[in-house]
Every structure is written in C-alpha cells, then in structure tokens.
Amino acid sequence: MATHLEITESLKTFTDNYSKNERLKIMNRDWDRVVLIKATDIESIHTLTLKDGVLSLNEGASGAPDLTVVSDSETLADVFYGDINPTEPYNNGTLRVMGSEDDITRLDFIILMIWGE
C-alpha cells in the first residue's frame, strides 16, 4: 500500500515532467479539464487542473471534475510515476477512469507522451 505522500510525490513528478514539455503545453491549450484522483484503500484525493495548457496540482477535491481516476494507492503511485502502463490495470479492472471516452483517451495520450511506452 502506498502512502498519501507517495501519491502526492508521484503526481508532482508527473506535473513537473508535463511542465517541462513545451510541446505538450501547446497541444493542450484548448483542453481545459479538471481531473480528480482518488485512492480506494487510503484517504487520498488530489485534483489536477489543466487550464490554457498549464497543469497544476492540488490536494483534495476542487470543483466538479471532467474525469475521475480511481484505483488503489499502489497503482495510482506507479501510474503517475510512469512505472507501469495504465492500460493494463485499466483492462483488468484495477484502475477505473470515469469521464468521456475522448477525455480518457487524451489523458492516456498525455501519460504516453510524458513516460513513453
């Protein structure tokens, strides 16, 4: 089981890597979204907010999300650190993402562009 702090660190690493990628920021200028990340086995909620291509991280929930990512703490930390590919836990039901199909695909594209295969 990962800790809340570890999930926070994984999301910070993810946000930092996103912010270093100028191309990704330009590509997402028109994709303003709120993503809620929630762990199922510990008390841990974070919000990623993408506005005008800039990604920011907050602890807790803030506003109605466009996407909700729900999984156990281990999977969440591993996915946002880029240690595992999100498709496998998604296909075996460990990771749930609620939102429109287009938004889910776009989030996966971003993870792929940051962490590669």
Binding site: M1, E6, E9, S10, E74, Y81, G82, D83, E117
Partner: peptide
C-alpha cells in the same frame, strides 16, 4: 517490451522498500 523497459523504477527506492 519487457527487455526495453527501464531497469530502474522512477519511484524512489526508499518508498519501494517500504512497500
């Protein structure tokens, strides 16, 4: 894919050991 995957995890080692 397994052979191409980076050997080291990005997640800090201390945290991994704890896990």
């Amino acid at each position: 894919y397994e052979t191409r995957k980076p050997a080291a995890r990005r997640r800090p080692a201390r945290a991994t050991k704890e896990v």
